[in-house]
Design a protein around this nucleic acid. Sequence first.
DNA 1: ATCTTTGTACAGTTTTTCCTGTACAAACTT
DNA 2: AAGTTTGTACAGGAAAAACTGTACAAAGAT
Lengths: 183, 183
Amino acid sequence: MSSQRESEEDLLRLEEARNKFISEIAKNIHLYNISSSVGRLYGTVFFAETPMTLDEMSQSLGMSKTSMSTGIRALSEANMVERVWEKGIRKDLYKTEDDWYKSFSNVFITRWRNATELNMSAIKDSKKMMKELYNESNDESIKEKVDRDMEKLTKAEAYYEWLNEVVALFDTGEIFDIVPKKH
Amino acid sequence: MSSQRESEEDLLRLEEARNKFISEIAKNIHLYNISSSVGRLYGTVFFAETPMTLDEMSQSLGMSKTSMSTGIRALSEANMVERVWEKGIRKDLYKTEDDWYKSFSNVFITRWRNATELNMSAIKDSKKMMKELYNESNDESIKEKVDRDMEKLTKAEAYYEWLNEVVALFDTGEIFDIVPKKH
DNA sequence: ATCTTTGTACAGTTTTTCCTGTACAAACTT
DNA sequence: AAGTTTGTACAGGAAAAACTGTACAAAGAT
């Protein structure tokens, strides 16, 4: 038999244990470009026994419902939480995406693919402008400068091509042949 | 022969071509947890024909020398620029690290390794607390909750182990056997 | 030893980000 | 149809980050 008092103490201890992990998540989630307090939100939903409503989150974190709304949106965009349907319940319900591999890949792939593509396209533009300048200029010192710059850009380009292939490794799931998922 | 006027125009065009790339870097450098204006600083040093002093950067960007100092420190910590010695020159000189693979790896590895290790250690702590609670509690509903939480944490742990191995792939350079460097 | 140059710590200001409360539209209930 | 409930847009306020100028210590020049 367990007394009421004991149970309350136990619940506090459970809270404490959960909080340890939640705090760490909050500290490191900036790697996903997500703020620390939205990280706490994630942690809260992660440990929730059932999918949570915005009001429950607000209550649990002592923050406004508006913040919960924007926080959940950020987490959704990063594929870290998802909306869940339950019949008879009018409020929106959210749970954490339980495939951690998927959320990591999603964030990593989208961010880096986007960056490499934009950078590569900027390099192409810059090179094109420089080539034209090279052909049209009569100034030797300018031509030398352009030459050096183009070389630098070509090196950068090669790197971005490499990075793009690395991203593809994750995108295709090939990475899991190299480093298998753990169970 | 090239006139003075022509050369000035050419220099402007070169500036413009460089700026195209610099702006793109500035836009995407937040992926390295570096602010946009420090990204411009990076780009400026990248295209400089010789290593730059803080005063030259300040002049070139129209920003305070203090900002250059802190900006360069951030870039150094990310291994994106390095200090360079030239005899007879008293001022500190900086150039960009020209091995892009190295700077990427450095940032990626340090950040993610650090995060995974802290998270794994937090998971271990949380699990330990939960195990103790499980053994000491007499409340069945608490025990169930603890059970479910531990399962969640175990899943997260497996993921972090995987991530850690992925980081090792980059750390050891093994990644270059899988996706070879471009030339 | 004195004078100059150079990088950065620090305090104050500006800009940006984060958070809240109010207000309201969309959807549901009666 | 009128009345509720629920999520979010938006404006204003609080907190954090970025930037600047001043001041000074360390190192170099005279």
